[in-house]
Design a protein around this nucleic acid. Structure first.
Lengths: 201, 201
DNA sequence: TGTCAAAGTTAGCGTCTCTTACATATGTAA
DNA sequence: TTACATATGTAAGAGACGCTAACTTTGACA
């Protein structure tokens, strides 16, 4: 997570400036929020001139898109790994997914809001695909638990209920002022409660 | 909601420029999002020079704060009114609150995200107070339904579960790309389902 | 070794931003 | 009517930003 942005050896050619810029951009989005992110800032952090990025990205938007793709792909694989340790068809797997979702939001609120916040223009197709992949994981687990033969209407409904809850929980716990209103409730306990309540008949 | 921003008579003194600027700011935040809002835009919309706002607001931030206050106050009173028609202690009142919450997010996504999105600096005390007032309404209703003698730990937990769910549902349905994954589920039906599932023993 | 494309830099254009100092118009109250 | 406080306009400062053109350094390969 704390990747190097500026290489020690100060050679003319950076080596992998593209990756360094993506990482710098990601860090800055986390630190200042997307609305205060500037290309110049990313350049300063990566230790290159303000013109350098344009050898790797068409414009500012493409830098941000690159960060979003990298981050969502990482999240997808995190979710797959989170489920792994628990037996198929168990509620533990659902809980693990919820725990990871909330954890991701807390670790990377900037990216989380970038993905789900207000954006005038629609996302890249690749972003939507990654989002769908990730949601498929949830729907698959829900179907297993409910004993449904695939993504039926019932599975869709329960999955969306779970997503809504976990998403809201993420947003609220991201903001200390708001989380406080929950009265220091344990996230783990809330996930436990919601799991069986939503998935029971 | 579609308030006049520029008065027809073009007198030197506007009459109520402050209110006009607040409304222009609110509209622009809805249209372009907070990160693309500029004082100049608000001035253009209100039909005054770019220096005019500084007789009414200390700076840009105070304009935005004014909008937030106005909007949250309105939301609080909407919530109070939403509950009114239904008998005390009934689940209908909870559902009405949820319906209004989601509705507000859909009608005014810009303000909704401004309130709940990523902001480096904490909100005004007045904003927090209004938020608390609104949440108190929910906790009060939950206590009534559960037959608890006030805001007990149980009331806190269930209220926060409801809030999380409704908040997540708001965020997801605000974004057409994401709402689609719910498979055109009826919000009303989701609120019904969640209500009893969360509040039952 | 010589050539060339790739990956940097320097310099700057054009635009937008927030904000202020100062001039001007207007309404009000004596 | 006159004086004055209030509300607005004009003009401009000071700075950030995105992006481009043109130049320079570097590494790889014939």
């Amino acid at each position: 997570m704390a990747k190097t942005v500026k290489s020690e050896k100060t050679t003319y050619h950076h080596g992998d400036l593209r990756a360094a810029l993506v990482e710098a951009t990601r860090q800055l989005i986390e630190e200042k929020g997307i609305d205060h992110f500037s290309v110049s800032d990313a350049c300063r952090r990566a230790g290159v001139s303000t013109a350098a990025p344009y050898k790797h990205f068409k414009n500012k938007g493409e830098m941000i898109n690159a960060v979003m793709l990298e981050s969502m792909d990482r999240h997808k694989h995190e979710m797959l790994a989170a489920v792994q340790p628990y037996p198929e068809g168990s509620l533990d797997r659902i809980r693990a997914l919820g725990r990871n979702y909330v954890g991701f939001a807390q670790r990377e609120p900037g990216i989380f809001l970038l993905r789900f916040g207000q954006n005038p223009d629609p996302h890249l197709p690749e972003v939507e695909d990654l989002g769908q992949d990730t949601y498929d994981i949830v729907q698959h687990e829900v179907a297993k638990i409910l004993g449904e033969p695939g993504v039926t209407d019932k599975v869709k409904q329960r999955s969306f209920m779970l997503w809504s809850f976990v998403h809201g929980l993420s947003m609220l716990t991201m903001n200390p002022e708001l989380a406080e209103k929950g009265g220091n409730l344990d996230v783990e306990e809330l996930l436990n409660e919601i799991g069986w309540r939503v998935l029971r008949d």
